[in-house]
């Protein structure tokens, strides 16, 4: 699942897939803005079939935390 999330993130920010880790911070490390996060939430919903409001990113701040959140929602 982490790999799929990294793939999606790579369509928003120009970073190498392999340079993204579970600990990468979405805003501070990867540079995603609130607009990116909004679109990311939509793509994650489509990919994993879970409801993910952009507001979740106030507390879900890393790539690994997204994976954990999806697991909890499933």
């Amino acid at each position: 699942m982490l790999e799929n999330i990294k793939d999606i993130i790579c369509s928003f920010v120009d970073v190498e897939h392999d340079s993204i880790t579970a600990d990468s911070k979405l805003t501070a490390d990867l540079g995603l803005c609130s607009m990116d996060l909004a679109m990311l939430s939509s793509e994650i919903e489509n990919e994993f079939g879970v409801v993910l409001s952009p507001k979740v990113f106030a507390t879900v701040k890393t790539v690994g935390a997204i994976a954990e959140y999806i697991e909890q929602q499933k």
């Binding site: 790579c10 928003f12 920010v13 120009d14 803005c33 609130s34 607009m35 990116d36 679109m39």
Partner: peptide, 16 residues
């Protein structure tokens, strides 16, 4: 502007 900036990012990634 933020929308234009964000979508430009997607275009640049596609081009690269």
């Amino acid at each position: 502007p933020m929308i234009a900036q964000s979508l430009l990012g997607k275009i640049k990634i596609l081009l690269r």
